[in-house]
Amino acid sequence: MLELSLLSGNEEFKKTAIQMIRRELENNVSVDEELHLAQVSDYSLGKERLIPYLGEGSAGIALTLFEFNKIAQSFNSAADQKLIENLCNVDETYCSYSSGITRGIAGFIILENAKKELGLIDDYNLSTLRNYLMTYKDHTIISPGNYGYRCSMDLFTGNSGLILTLSDLDTGSWNGWLPIIPGSLSNLFGENKES
């Protein structure tokens, strides 16, 4: 909705997007002040679970807030900056059930790419990848996919997404994994700021 407001010039879309993200933050984000960690709470299984991932979790909310910071000055308060910092701390997670983007370690690499682009970290921590990848016939590296059932080559759970994520390490960006043709949406992930 926020990007749609940029493309259309409709300020009502921006207001709606801000209301939506604020409601999401108030209702679904748990902050542990002692650990300096914020995570998305999920109740779909009848009890609270904390979700750190890019898909449906803290890493995804952190990336969304990075974009809100660029476009909506109202997200530059000290409280919002502290929340973003606490959300970003999930990239220290060493427990994940796959190497994929949406619910795996690659999503945390995307978050680290974004943090490096914004000057929030100096270097990457890629050592956890060795827990999730396998070698095949000496030279091929494969991703076991979700739950390790089978090798995966797709964007969200397998090698394709992981390769795009890792290729972003050299480009200074974090969104190479997004299936968007460059230049197709001129303002998407741009540097626009409200005045």
Rank of each mutant, 00 (worst) to 15 (best):
I163G: 00
G119D: 12
E194H: 11
W177H: 14
I121K: 07
T64D: 02
Q39L: 12
C151Q: 04
D138I: 04
L188T: 02
R23C: 10
S30W: 09
D80C: 08
K14G: 06
S173G: 13
S41C: 12
Y53F: 15
C151A: 12
N27T: 13
K115V: 07
N69K: 11
N89M: 10
G55N: 06
H139S: 13
T64P: 03
D154G: 06
S99F: 04
V29N: 06
Q73V: 09
G107K: 03
T16N: 13
G55C: 08
D168A: 10
D122L: 14
R150S: 11
V31Q: 03
L65W: 03
V29T: 07
Y124A: 00
S44N: 07
D168W: 03
N86I: 01
F68Y: 11
L178Y: 12
N192P: 05
S99M: 06
M153W: 00
E12N: 15
E3A: 13
I21A: 01
D138C: 02
K137H: 15
S58Q: 03
L2Y: 05
E67M: 08
S5H: 07
G119A: 13
A72S: 14
H36Q: 14
L25Y: 00
M134S: 14
R23K: 15
G158M: 00
D32G: 09
N27S: 14
D123H: 04
L162I: 10
G148T: 01
Q19N: 15
M20F: 01
Y149L: 15
F189C: 08
L63C: 11
L129A: 00
D123C: 09
N10V: 09
T171W: 08
S173M: 12
G148V: 01
A38S: 12
N175A: 13
